[in-house]
Amino acid sequence: MRRQLLFTALGAAIALTSPLAGAAGDELNFDAYREMLADGNPAELLEMEGEELWRTARGPKNATLEQCDLGRGPGVVEGAAAQLPRYFADTDKVQDLESRLMHCMEAQQGIPSAEIINGQFLKGERGKLAALVAYVVTHSKGKPIAIDLSHPRVKEMYDMGERAFRYRTGAMDFACSSCHSQDGKRIRATQLPNITKPEGAAEGWSSWPAYRVSNSQFWTMQHRLWDCFRQQRTAEPVFASDVTIALSVFMAGKGNGAEARWPGVKR
């Protein structure tokens, strides 16, 4: 409870910082916030909710997710997120953590994927899925990111992701690369990682999903990508669609070997 209060206060403090107040100030303060939060990420509350959801019998089939195979065997959560996205033979698809969880929810619990795909972030079953994400990623914290690019289907997604990353389109001609392919660039006061390099890709991939202090929301990687596409002025990406998986494989694969810091804390 006390913690919750502290976070709300922090959120408010950051929200009040005027966008004109300055780059340096914001960045410095933010490091301080991060340190304060280091041993108490508010995402912990969501992790607990996710763990509960994992073990609770739900849906039309009244089943738990304890038989869900995230790639390391049925029910194995430890280290699973660090190896995702990967190829799954049962679906014949390359899946990220979110699309895999969605598959398990449908296959085991009978919760229709359409409900999640057509839903909204932070709401309903898609909101519950985010809590499950928080739970699963916590069990890869500190593990090296290890995407198996030797698998031809994964490598193929990587190559498609690399091209999607540079695909200029939309009302402002932007591609991801317009904002994320040079070192040390900023949009306003916000530092942008150079995702075309391993360090930048690792920075992006290993710090999301994250708790966003500015709006007190937990955002998954699907959510992060969705908002970057919004800023890019494209049409709306479909939840867990191929482009989101391809870009994820590209970023995760390029960041291979970096240490996962999930769940992150971001402005």
């Binding site: 498609m160 695909y167 939309g170 494209t234 049409a235 709306e236 479909v238 669609s241 191929d242 391809a246």
Partner: peptide, 13 residues
């Protein structure tokens, strides 16, 4: 993929 993975939403067709 850049077509199939997206849907129109409001002014963003």
């Amino acid at each position: 993929m850049m077509l199939d993975s997206f849907k129109a939403n409001g002014i963003a067709g």
